[in-house]
Design a protein around this nucleic acid. Structure first.
Lengths: 115, 115
DNA sequence: CATTATACATTGCATCACATAGTATTGTCA
DNA sequence: TGACAATACTATGTGATGCAATGTATAATG
């Protein structure tokens, strides 16, 4: 595999993960998290997310009304912004889960080693 | 669900499918196809792809050396460009299949209804 | 003879992940 | 004590890419 091909492969793997990020994030926000702890939870479970991806994503989802957030300015600690799913966010999560499941079935059909 | 939320939901579903498109395309090109027949094969199996997505995608994959193509200029027929997987394309397909499988496992872990 | 299906191409727009860099505090370890 | 890593969040620019829209042209269908 040439260097160029390796580059293409990495790129395609990134694309593959790209679409799933929101689903991954929403799934974990069934429990309250702040950005950093959310990232750790995802990484721990095998889903690596860049900080430069996650933080803006959370702000975007909040601006779309899918998340609620609240600052925690505890004394003697760094300020944390806690996120939870809004009702709309829960509805979207349900949608995306269904779509994900459907996609799995479709892809299984496409990837069958026929003949 | 408000109109805005419906918009977000559609958008996120598009994103979800986005990353998988290349994998879907490569999977079907284990058999030779031209663009139009490839699109039909995908749609038939539940994977809807836009023409404006598919045709440029095929050109791009070819330019990256993952596909080979050949015009068929049969008399009394519309010209068709037939695509097949190159060796590099087959390698990438194998990679992506593995990544897809891994992603499935990870997502299953994330989506578990714990508690 | 008009409409639909086939077959491919192109352009501009909008979305979005990531790399990178920056700020600031807390903890660790030599 | 002083350097470095970890914590926690923000901001910006770039590149990749899907899609809607539009165009071209031929064949089939009614």
């Amino acid at each position: 595999m040439t260097k160029a091909n390796q580059q293409y492969a990495e790129n395609l793997q990134l694309e593959l993960r790209r679409g799933v990020i929101v689903l991954a994030v929403l799934s974990q926000l069934r429990q309250t998290h702040y950005g950093y702890s959310l990232r750790q939870a995802l990484v721990d479970k095998g889903f690596d997310v860049n900080e430069g991806t996650l933080y803006p994503l959370l702000r975007r989802l909040e601006s779309q009304g899918l998340l609620n957030s609240e600052w925690d300015l505890e004394e003697g600690g760094r300020p944390r912004r806690y996120y939870t799913l809004s009702e709309a966010g829960q509805a979207i999560l349900t949608d995306l889960k269904a779509e994900w499941k459907y996609l799995g079935v479709v892809m299984d059909g496409l990837l069958v080693d026929d003949k």
